[in-house]
């Protein structure tokens, strides 16, 4: 019986909220969402970590300006030709040929963001578009697109990239990003399709149809703004998986050799046999990979709660 009270109460609350807010729904929703987000511990931790990583990525431009030997890829300390532990000159030590680990770590943050966000963004754009079209058009278009999605979904991304790089030699980092994006959209499109299917039944879509709106107009003007929050949520999860795939590729030796990524750093540790000898070199990139994926994941979980009221704890109703 409790359900009814809460339900009717929420409705009356909604009405009141609606009257007093005089902003665009996006801003209003953002504010309301932020209020809920702020109460989420995981979300707060995730966001803090991400801010730290973002600062690291921004700072990656500083060391090379101080001294060219801090160039993460090409800069070598003229006095050091082997891996050394932390010192005043090299806060985290140097690698096997005397390059500064800290500046490599900072550059790695930049690469991680670049790879993660751009791959995720591309896969979201593809996935959302395909999901909306499949859901809205239905019938044969839907079947065709979803079978395609199924086929791609069952292909192991890592393996395909390995085979491709075996065929074409070393891959450029942007090609890797593109491949990750092309293989990671089906999950997104499934979710967006489901959302579109339910939106399609809503009267405001029918009203647009009766007004004479074309399919394109309905999809991009009426459906898209309503699925975007969900798409952004999935983007955070996609970032995580893109970073992990890139790190794994680099570690296995199939990364872009001209880019310093955390996976690449790990590969150097391993290849030069410092795995168990130089914790100052092994740990930072390892911890960073774990933490950045974890923080994107936590961000996603918290956003999930903002978007899906069912996941919220009861406490917030008051």
């Amino acid at each position: 019986m409790g359900r009814f009270e809460i339900g009717s109460y929420e409705m009356s609350m909604e009405k009141l909220n609606k009257k007093s807010l005089n902003r665009s729904p996006r801003i209003a929703r953002f504010r309301a969402g932020w209020a809920i987000y702020r109460q989420n511990l995981l979300g707060k931790i995730g966001l803090t970590l991400l801010v730290i990583f973002a600062l690291m990525a921004l700072c990656s431009f500083i060391p090379p300006l101080i001294d060219p030997m801090y160039q993460p890829m090409t800069g070598v300390d003229p006095d050091i030709a082997k891996s050394t532990g932390p010192s005043l000159r090299h806060w985290l030590g140097t690698d096997f040929m005397g390059r500064d680990i800290l500046s490599q770590l900072l550059a790695g943050a930049r690469v991680a963001f670049m790879v993660g966000v751009s791959a995720a963004f591309m896969s979201i754009v593809i996935g959302t578009t395909i999901g909306m079209i499949a859901g809205y058009m239905g019938k044969f278009v839907d079947t065709l697109l979803m079978r395609l999605a199924d086929m791609i979904m069952v292909m192991p991304t890592l393996l395909v990239v390995l085979i491709l790089s075996a065929l074409f030699g070393q891959l450029n980092i942007w090609i890797i990003v593109l491949i990750i994006a092309l293989f990671r959209w089906p999950g997104v499109s499934r979710v967006i399709r489901a959302q579109t299917l339910s939106l399609k039944q809503r009267p405001f879509i029918e009203a647009a149809k009766v007004a004479g709106a074309s399919h394109m107009r309905i999809i991009f003007r009426h459906i898209m703004p309503n699925v975007l929050p969900l798409a952004f949520l999935y983007m955070t999860f996609r970032v995580t998986s893109a970073i992990i795939i890139e790190a794994a590729l680099a570690f296995l030796g199939f990364g872009d050799p001209s880019t310093v990524s955390w996976g690449m750093m790990l590969q150097w540790v391993w290849k030069t046999g410092h795995m168990f000898k130089a914790p100052y070199w092994l740990l930072p990139p390892g911890i960073c990979i774990s933490l950045i994926t974890l923080s994107f994941y936590m961000l996603g979980r918290a956003m999930d709660e903002v978007l899906d009221p069912r996941l919220r704890k009861e406490a917030e109703t008051g």
């Binding site: 019986m1 409790g2 009270e5 109460y9 109703t317 008051g318």
Partner: peptide, 20 residues
């Protein structure tokens, strides 16, 4: 709607939501 009639009924049953 919103005139308080449902609230009145709920109050008689002492079934108001927690913030009531």
């Amino acid at each position: 709607s919103g005139c308080g009639k449902t609230t009145l009924g709920m109050a008689l049953m002492r079934l108001l939501p927690p913030n009531g």
